[in-house]
Design a protein around this nucleic acid. Structure first.
Lengths: 339, 339
DNA sequence: CTGAAAGCGCTTACAG
DNA sequence: CTGAAAGCGCTTACAG
């Protein structure tokens, strides 16, 4: 869309009696401009409502002020929270975000196509694609700044914004042990992905800290969907020595486990306590409401955009890891074990 | 990001021995190019991996090949489905999408700022902002092509992609009547918005067709949230002559009504049938699973992008209304009334 | 059916 | 601290 007669840099230059280069310096906060000159440019720009044209800037500066955000549609509220956080930060710094749905199965080439086609300045990779070190490495080797959300620690040294899964899992399991549970089942998401692995490690840590062990038959692997939660729930709860509590790696699977418990005639939390992970909207809509872990997903989006923009504007920025903390949210799906 | 030596239109022109204007004609499917010439340009472009630079096109043509999509975060899966549909269609036609969270309360000015700042070619407005005729009218008066999702019929003649709420409601209520229900409660979303009004109208139509009337005490207005569903459910189901079925205007409120029924010691669907609207993920995660209406949200996104691009590329395109149809999804939350 | 010229609104690289 | 020139990679408007 085009507004009829948008003022340009030339208008500001003419009206202020300066060259457009000087106006450009002020717009871009470049320094080496007398304070008085700077102020004059700002006044005139404000007065005529001048906004730099992002298309022209993009062409001349060879950057677009647009960031890409790849996502997978596994979890709508996660994706949207992340997007909103990143958008808030990006907009405040003069950037826009173009989302790109992909699943990583199509490889780095597909993402590279997107990057080239959309002409973006950098990318935020959300899980599960962010787990694929090879894709991150490839994008970076092409000179594309990348920030990974919840990427795997061991992989390429790209910037990561991570959630401390392990200590969150420790907190949850310690809470269940504190209630008196000793047989606590574990329902993992996709087995080879980092988050579930780290949560399992934290779960085992917390058990070990109280001298407890995790029985192999008390572990079930799903894929973060409700249906897989039902299947895992049935498997765990049909056992003779069934767990009195089940730790699930997301809220959807926890909903599935609750569903399975009901199918087996078990009361939640009377016969079995169930915990989730994420504090998705569903956690409040279940009956009973779900004890869970809240990830600061929106904040992760904010941090990711902030770090990515820093990398774009200063290529010398060193990759780092931001690790954000959980909160444990207690609701109705957990109780002391029945004696 | 910048790929090292991206081929430009000049490379294609030089290699093919043609002018860059001719290459440009081929790229833009402009016609008036000999078929043989066209083919040669295409071959060379493919061979050297030429992709037109969107920044340069944007600057020269005064359009960006980017579409804006405003959204409200009320319902994550709705927003994401819409975005994915619009994205699929837009990408296939060479456009990208920039999402913009807003709630309409900040008025047209806020959206106009976004449009100017992002330099987009047109906007898709999703509900509830799309219901605000004044905003649509204002954007259009500034020459910005707009397509509304689920906008109100009575308002400005902007293009609308709509869901036929009324006949969907008729189908749902007719189904409940077919089961033998005669006292059917209605839980509306925000009272003054079109969708709920149209659903109420359909509900009343279907009742009237069987000679039934909707008792005023069987109507409750919520705001599409789970909590409002609980409140409405308690209000309706505590009555002496309580309904034997409750028609809810979305799945979240239906989840709330089911929750309320349980709190009152009522079995669903034994004592009361409950129906939803949307077929959101939660519909499958409830216990019992929810009988509901599926809106083709993704298809609405596809259609909206298609229409908007048509308007951008041909300003003479006349506004029209696309009305997409529902499907009724029968699950476990509905049954014959207990006699 | 094809092309040479001008220009979109900025920034870069250089000069002073 | 400031500016004149050139150019980013395309499209527009015009001419043939």
């Amino acid at each position: 869309m085009e507004r009829s007669k948008k003022p340009t840099i030339n208008d500001v230059a003419r009206l202020s009696g300066l060259s457009k280069k000087t106006v450009s310096r002020v717009i871009n906060n470049e320094g080496f401009v007398r304070e008085e000159t700077r102020q004059r440019v700002r006044d005139i720009a404000a007065q005529i409502g001048y906004q730099p044209d992002r298309r022209a800037r993009a062409l001349a500066a060879k950057r677009s002020f647009i960031i890409g955000l790849t996502f997978d549609n596994a979890n709508a509220s996660y994706v949207l929270d992340l997007l909103q956080g990143a958008l808030a930060e990006a907009n405040a710094r003069g950037y826009e975000i173009i989302p790109h749905p992909t699943d990583g199965a199509r490889g780095a080439g597909e993402v590279a196509d997107f990057i080239a086609r959309a002409g973006i300045d950098g990318a935020i990779l959300s899980p599960p694609m962010s787990e694929l070190g090879a894709i991150t490495a490839e994008l970076m080797s092409w000179g594309c700044p990348v920030v990974r959300i919840a990427g795997d620690d061991a992989a390429t040294p790209a910037h990561q914004v991570r959630f401390d899964d392990r200590s969150a899992a420790v907190a949850m399991t310690a809470y269940l042990i504190g209630l008196g549970h000793t047989r606590i089942g574990f329902v993992g998401g996709t087995e080879h992905q980092g988050p579930s692995r780290r949560r399992l490690a934290g779960h085992i840590d917390a058990l070990a800290a109280r001298g407890l062990a995790l029985a192999p038959e008390h572990i079930a692997w799903g894929d973060f969907t409700f249906a897989s939660g039902v299947a895992c729930g049935l498997r765990l709860l049909r056992q003779a020595g069934r767990p009195s509590a089940v730790f699930c790696c997301n809220d959807e699977m926890a909903a599935g486990v609750i569903h399975a418990a009901r199918d087996l005639g078990l009361d939640v939390p009377g016969d079995v306590s169930v915990t989730g992970f994420d504090d998705a909207p569903i956690a409040l809509q279940l009956w009973p409401t779900l004890t869970t872990i809240k990830q600061p997903v929106r904040d992760m989006g904010v941090t990711a955009a902030q770090r990515l923009i820093a990398m774009i504007e200063n290529p010398a920025t060193r990759p780092a890891v931001d690790e954000l903390r959980h909160s444990l949210i207690l609701r109705e799906s957990t109780a002391k074990p029945r004696q």
